[in-house]
Design a binder for these strands. Structure first.
Lengths: 196, 196
DNA sequence: GGGCAATCTTGTCAGTGTCAAGTTGTGGAG
DNA sequence: CTCCACAACTTGACACTGACAAGATTGCCC
């Protein structure tokens, strides 16, 4: 009495992993046309379910985007965790943005998110801890007198480069070079050994 | 025979400056709730006109946002024009973003814009010229060996700081300090006099 | 004064988010 | 094995939106 849970041509009443399917479709749409182009009904159609099915997993359109942002901060945190110094962390930050442009866009669009969501805030906090750890791992000679300023500078440089990159504002300047290497060179200008 | 063009309580058939009114209302909405919250019908209501009136000035929702972006690039270009060196240009860039967050957000959201719009492309090109002029005005000792890299670094730092600032991601780190001064300090870390 | 183009209105249609209520499957307790 | 509570999904409805077409009003220029 189990009519084709995963193989049948007649779609079963229960999707199996609708939550993941909706997330995946949403990420595709966002990467292609931006967050404003996601429509719950459209995602439902792509997954082959009724128009109100997504609401059961995400409650809201805002809930869906919040889930994406939380997932993104989690992915970013693990990416940064594997970095062995600040420069590497910056490269990983930029690479994360390039490989997960949909997540990245949503993560930094607070007006699209439920800011008091628990999963979101914990994931974001964890990513923040990883970022600060990378900064404080910098030897003090390279970091300058003010650790806090160094952190802001590093984050700004990486975030700005990543943002301009995925919005295609650097296409003319970077060309077909490897963005990782370009950013690697950039970090060399920021934290130079300074003399007294 | 001019029944109360600006003073009458009965609103006249012709608004007077509907285009500007719509733009202003849209900027308010975007600054408060982001670009996805703008609704042509809502803007029409705020201006006291019928729901289809905005279409006559902007054609589209995309047309409205494109007009905002074009205006933004124009404002940015004139702001940068008054800068006397690269550091000042950076400070002005950040200040522009802080004082015109709605423009800034829309300017760098290509998926919301009509990319082949003439006014947009010319305004954006002009702003790009101003940016490059500021970079090449840097004395070569401070700029490093690669002018192109220096430009990318400067733009990334300013853009990243501005973006993180207006998305309230630096609230904890900057506190109630003057963002201009914080950014001024940041630029000091980027272009240091380098030794051989 | 007469037309004419710009400006604005009214009406309509398909599409969307969200809520409420019903339907179907699932897994676990007895 | 049965039954029942709950999770997953559907159906239906409502208000709202963007876009288009067709008509009304106004100012302007000759």
């Amino acid at each position: 009495m189990n009519p084709a849970k995963t193989s049948g041509s007649e779609r079963p009443y229960h999707h199996g992993d609708l939550r993941r399917a909706i997330l995946g479709a949403a990420l595709d749409v966002i990467a292609a046309e931006g967050p404003s182009a996601v429509s719950l009904r459209d995602l439902a159609r792509r997954a082959g379910v009724s128009h109100a099915a997504p609401a059961h997993h995400f409650k809201d359109r805002v809930g869906l985007l919040t889930a994406i942002a939380a997932e993104g901060f989690g992915l970013l945190a693990t990416a940064l965790d594997a970095a062995d110094d600040l420069r590497d962390a910056g490269v990983r930050y930029v690479r994360f943005a390039r490989e997960n442009p949909a997540h990245f866009q949503v993560m930094f669009s607070p007006e699209l998110l439920r800011e008091n969501d628990l999963e979101l805030t914990t994931a974001r906090t964890l990513a923040g801890v990883r970022l600060r750890a990378a900064v404080s791992a910098l030897p003090s000679e390279g970091r300058g007198p003010d650790t806090r300023l160094a952190g802001i500078a590093a984050w700004s440089l990486a975030h700005g480069f990543a943002t301009l990159l995925i919005s295609h504002n650097l296409d003319g300047q970077v060309g077909d070079e490897d963005p990782d290497e370009v950013f690697h060179a950039l970090t060399g200008m920021l934290f130079r050994p300074q003399q007294p």
